[in-house]
């Protein structure tokens, strides 16, 4: 299986050795997934969460759990209160 389309989606670039392994694994796993087709799921709705929960609302009051400074301090590079990245406009 050519996994390069999925590499593009996942924003990953595997080296040759990793890719050979991953392709073999994806082939093997995909084959095992054919078993799903044998299960009759007609009329069964998808279950997204194990809990039947309704959306929880709270009072519309702004809360700041973490400060801007704390979050920026965790960034690999920041400048003047912003995240720093390479030039994005040519």
């Amino acid at each position: 299986m050519d996994i390069q389309p999925y590499e593009k989606m996942a924003k990953l670039r595997l080296d040759e050795k990793e890719r050979a392994w991953a392709e073999g694994m994806m082939d093997k796993l995909s084959q095992s997934f054919t078993a799903l087709a044998e299960v009759d799921t007609d009329g069964i709705a998808p279950l997204v969460s194990p809990l039947d929960m309704e959306n929880v609302f709270r009072e519309d009051i702004a809360a700041q759990l973490v400060s801007r400074e704390t979050l920026l301090a965790a960034a690999p590079a920041s400048y003047d209160g912003y995240y720093e990245v390479p030039r994005t406009i040519e």
């Binding site: 595997l14 991953a22 994806m26």
Partner: peptide
């Protein structure tokens, strides 16, 4: 691309690729 490719291990990459599929 490079941060993710250098930062994730082999199994994490496979699981992410499988997820995209």
């Amino acid at each position: 691309i490079r941060s993710r490719s250098e930062g994730f291990g082999r199994e994490a990459k496979l699981l992410a690729l499988l997820g995209c599929k």
